[in-house]
Design a protein around this nucleic acid. Sequence first.
DNA 1: TAGTTACGTTACTATTTACTAACATAATAA
DNA 2: TTATTATGTTAGTAAATAGTAACGTAACTA
Lengths: 134, 134
Amino acid sequence: MPRIASAPKDKLDPIWKALADPTRRSILDLLRDRPRTTTEIVDAFPHLTRFGVMKHLDALREADLVHTREEGRQRVNSLNVFPIRQIYERWVSPFQEVWSSHLLWIKELAEQEDSESGTNSRKKKKVRPLNLQR
Amino acid sequence: MPRIASAPKDKLDPIWKALADPTRRSILDLLRDRPRTTTEIVDAFPHLTRFGVMKHLDALREADLVHTREEGRQRVNSLNVFPIRQIYERWVSPFQEVWSSHLLWIKELAEQEDSESGTNSRKKKKVRPLNLQR
DNA sequence: TAGTTACGTTACTATTTACTAACATAATAA
DNA sequence: TTATTATGTTAGTAAATAGTAACGTAACTA
């Protein structure tokens, strides 16, 4: 398992893995509406077998995106949005800053190129406002 | 290819796929700081080969998470946060509502169980405030 | 009690993904 | 020009992932 050794084990990794599959995201969308029993979820994906759907449910449970409680012989699965919140705090929120500074850079670049029009800028080294050299 | 037929092709799918890998997320973190040449990125992952890192870069480019521009014989890779924004708008923002209503339900459940303590609630069907029956 | 239903598992296969090693090319520097 | 450096590619392997088919079990129901 070289990949696990490669990157530092991310705590959010199971969440990303779970969200990477379109079927699993569909299940989450389904549960967003209201909780569903396992059979209800299985029936919602007629092109997959029971086992296939349940494997996806396992992945979602491991990422804590889905909570399951027993109700007689049924299992009721419900959405837990907390991990999505974590993804947001770790990944969206910190990138908002870059988001705005990136827009700023585009603006500056556009103005720069505007004042340079006519010259052969293909070979020219255009240095970004951010530090690039080692 | 049963999986592609299974779930409706999601426009955000390449973004999710790209973000699912911890190495790729590390690359994004690296680029968040400042843009880097391909070699700089490769050097940042000494346990991976050049080809391995470049495959990850390809995936990030396909998801439009990384932009690459030529600079002489160098390629400068920079972060594009727009797809992260899209993920947020499609997945985090809509779940905020569920987030708060879920908290509300937990509160109600706790109160309900509080008033029921002492009875055998194992076999009892406890109906959620949300609609569960078909 | 006998049948049905909801849930889960075992065993196996196909596909995709991640990866290494070695090779190829083009721009720059001595 | 020759060497070096930055980048990219070809070919092939190992492992993770997603999937099916068939079987097992326990709780309801007629």
